[in-house]
């Protein structure tokens, strides 16, 4: 067990160095996990085929603050898209019990988001999400530049500011 500990310690240290060599900032990369969309098509999280920045928002049909966050952003989402070219990917961590309610809720609320189904929490684990809601902002290179756990009213404005900052930087 000690060996494993040192192994991981070594890896962690070596990443620090390699990350500093390859990036100007010490940021983490978007993991590649194979998920399904609501239609059942295979989608790789690292190859979404969208232009512009991406917001990943982890949610579930049973999570009240998640729905509050996504319903609030829904009201301004079209403005954000026009302004920044952003795509919001709502990653549902609903498992088999409630998974089938996801399209009902998403369409019932008329959301325009891309929705991915993470029914066995593979992407949730890979992204280090402890609890939902958890929101990540990813630049066009796949670097995670901002993340926020939990939601309280007003957090959407912070996310919007970070998004504008990111778009400004890359222009």
């Amino acid at each position: 067990m000690k060996t494993l500990f040192f192994g991981i310690l070594f890896l962690a240290i070596s990443t620090q160095f390699s990350a500093q060599e390859t990036h100007t900032e010490n940021v983490k990369h978007l993991p590649s996990v194979k998920l399904k969309d609501m239609e059942g098509n295979d989608i790789n999280t690292a190859e979404l085929g969208v232009k512009g920045p991406i917001i990943f928002s982890f949610w579930a049909t049973w999570c009240a603050p998640c729905k509050r966050e996504l319903n609030t952003i829904h009201e301004v989402y079209q403005d954000w898209v026009e302004e920044t070219g952003v795509t919001l990917v709502a990653v549902s961590i609903d498992d088999e019990k409630t998974k089938n309610s996801v399209p009902v809720y998403v369409n019932g609320k008329a959301w325009d988001y891309m929705v991915l189904m993470d029914s066995n929490a593979d992407f949730k684990r890979a992204m280090g999400v402890n609890n939902v809601p958890h929101t990540f902002l990813v630049d066009t290179e796949g670097n995670i530049v901002y993340s926020h756990n939990s939601y309280s009213p007003g957090d959407e404005d912070l996310l919007h500011q970070e998004l504008l900052k990111l778009v400004k930087k890359s222009n």
Binding site: L4, F10, A12, S14, S18, A19
Partner: peptide
């Protein structure tokens, strides 16, 4: 894990190491 990690670290510098 330890030995594989080292070998990957040594030989595939072109791929970023990612830890989450």
């Amino acid at each position: 894990i330890f030995s594989t990690a080292i070998s990957f670290y040594d030989f595939s510098q072109n791929n970023d190491l990612n830890i989450t």
